[in-house]
């Protein structure tokens, strides 16, 4: 076994790439769930983002517009869910699952003519001398811009939920929609906005897969990433910083285990393959244990609201 063949610099760089799609999707779902809505359609919105992002990037020739289109596509998908669950009061679990099925099918249809086409990859950010610094340069300043966007989004979400009035209203809607309604807040509007934001984030995460991480369009390419993101939100007990830790742990150990195998580490492969799931769950559960127990989930999560009730 030759572990020196694993370069820590390259490992951290690819770790961040591997983690970004689930980070974006989980962050969006966190906001949705904070508003009291359970949208199980993350996988569907992600794959739509992956398809639309790729198609837009190919047709328009701009990766950035690809990301914009992906966010828009994800948001439209999410609003479909929003209209059904918030205005027509359909069951959130069933509608979310249907959204995933619909998304997978629609994405395959849209992507029919785009299999095997190449797209210009997002160039790594070049911060001049900073990016040339040994180790630190590549790790801190040498990523594609979307990695920084995702990190900024984590900080922004955290600050929004914690410090702003709008964030407080959103949390109030999630904890007790009746109380929020009694105070005169428009519960359905707040939830629709949150759902749209969640869809946009999932769309961005999907587009990151098809435009940066893989980068190409393949049917079914999310391969369950949306479900990982969903689970991550729960294990991170609805806290943005923990979602970040969880996503980087998951992405990191996924990449690390592949690197260890390639380097010929004498650890059973079965254990290595299971490690990302085991370690992420273990760490997040341990973190959550320190806080108060059981009170993390928004109280009205998944409950339908109608002003008459």
């Amino acid at each position: 076994m030759d572990l020196t063949s694993i370069s820590p610099t390259l490992l951290i760089a690819s770790l961040m790439v591997a983690a970004t799609p689930i980070l974006l999707a989980a962050l969006g779902e966190l906001v949705v769930e904070k508003a009291g809505v359970l949208n199980l359609g993350v996988e569907g919105m992600m794959i739509i983002g992956a398809a639309i992002g790729f198609i837009a990037a190919v047709e328009i020739g701009s990766v950035w517009l690809g990301f914009a289109a992906a966010a828009l596509g994800g948001a439209v998908m999410a609003l479909l869910f929003g209209v059904l669950t918030q205005l027509l009061l359909s069951n959130q679990v069933a509608t979310g699952l249907a959204l995933t099925l619909f998304g997978l099918g629609l994405a395959s249809l849209l992507g029919q003519g785009y299999v095997g086409i190449k797209v210009d990859a997002l160039p790594r950010l070049d911060m001049g001398p900073l990016s040339d610094l040994p180790f630190v340069g590549r790790v801190l300043f040498g990523h594609d811009p979307m990695v920084y966007v995702s990190l900024a989004l984590v900080a922004a979400t955290w600050a929004f939920l914690r410090f702003t009035r709008a964030g407080l209203i959103l949390r109030a809607v999630g904890e007790s929609h009746d109380a929020a309604h009694a105070l005169g807040y428009h519960v359905v509007r707040v939830r629709l906005l949150a759902i749209a934001f969640g869809g946009a984030c999932a769309g961005l995460g999907g587009a990151y897969l098809s435009l940066v991480r893989v980068p190409q369009w393949t049917e079914g390419m999310t391969a369950g990433a949306g479900w990982i993101a969903l689970a991550l939100v729960v294990f991170a007990s609805w806290k943005p910083a923990r979602v970040l830790v969880g996503a980087y742990l998951f992405g990191g150990i996924t990449v690390l285990q592949l690197n260890l195998q390639t380097a010929g580490a004498t650890i059973p492969v079965e254990l290595l393959s299971a490690a990302p799931y085991l370690v992420t769950i273990l760490v997040l559960v341990l973190i959550s244990r320190r806080g108060r127990r059981g009170g993390d989930a928004p109280a009205d999560l998944g409950r339908a609201f109608h002003a008459s009730s």
Partner: peptide, 27 residues
Amino acid sequence: MVVTWVYTWFDPAKEADAARAMIDQGV
């Protein structure tokens, strides 16, 4: 010969990661 087991028939992201890990290590 460097063998990496990914335990999936189809997962583009994981397959790409596996390829990248190999390339990073000189394959």
